[in-house]
């Protein structure tokens, strides 16, 4: 039995008269890495935020690991435990050290003991290659290091699904690689991931499937090799040429 990790069923989101998401449907299976490409303003970030209830949607259905998402329902907290999120600007808590950033949610949400949450944090720092940086504050870390801490922070909740919202767009070019390496390792480890990005190489190498989104709809989707080398839709073709 292979139940979907995520089901998106004709989701519509309107801001006034404008539809940011205009009837989106797709599925993600456990262990799958879905890469979403598309021009900015095409609704990609909004889609991710709808999945863990950070934003409301107008109609349609979203089911995460068997839980139906209602942004104001009681289940939403369970959904957020199962779906970790990585932001473009990291959004680390500036008043906490790297380790405290990772420990916070396990401590107050999962109610782990200080020793347990600390152990978990140390293990995750090691996993993202930042064992020596636990006592640093976010302001003292480079962008790439901050984003790796953010990934560790999300992993601390042991999510089943990870949502990446342009994780490398705000980084200096020299630190992009270290973040992509961590993400790649996650993918190999079997994590279900949805990645909004402009990194075509990452999409090709790590993605199981690519989805091209524009103006609130899925324009085209398929396996990376096919979609990147022989895009069917003119809008996709144009976008890929521009990014390359």
């Amino acid at each position: 039995m292979t139940a979907e990790m995520l089901t998106i069923d004709s989701v519509v989101k309107r801001y006034g008269a404008r539809a940011v998401l205009n009837g989106i449907s797709f599925r993600v299976m456990p262990g799958e890495v879905l890469v979403i490409l598309g021009p900015s303003g095409g609704g990609k970030s909004t889609l991710l935020r709808c999945i863990n209830g950070l934003e409301d949607f107008s109609s349609g259905r979203i089911v995460v690991d068997g839980l139906t998402v209602h942004p104001h329902g009681a289940d939403i907290w369970e959904v957020r435990k199962r779906a970790g999120m990585i932001f473009q600007h990291f959004n680390l808590f500036p008043h906490l050290t790297a380790r405290q950033n990772i420990e916070l949610a396990p401590r107050v949400v999962l109610r782990l003991s200080p020793a347990e949450s600390r152990e978990r944090a140390e293990a995750l720092l090691a996993r993202v290659g930042l064992s020596d940086f636990g006592r640093q504050y976010p302001g003292q870390l480079s962008g790439g290091q901050q984003q790796r801490v953010a990934i560790a922070r999300a992993l601390a909740m042991q999510p089943k699904l990870m949502l990446f919202d342009e994780p490398t767009s705000a980084l200096d070019p020299e630190t992009v690689g270290e973040v992509l390496a961590v993400m790649k390792e996650l993918a190999t480890g079997g994590m279900t991931m949805i990645v909004v990005t402009h990194e075509l190489n990452f999409a090709k190498e790590v993605g199981d499937r690519i989805m091209f989104m524009d103006a609130g709809v899925v324009v085209e989707e398929g396996p990376p090799g096919e979609l990147l080398s022989r895009p069917q839709n003119p809008r996709t073709r144009q976008f890929i040429q521009a990014v390359l």
Partner: peptide
């Protein structure tokens, strides 16, 4: 948003 996404 970050706090909510972590389930706080």
């Amino acid at each position: 948003l970050a706090a909510r996404a972590l389930g706080l």
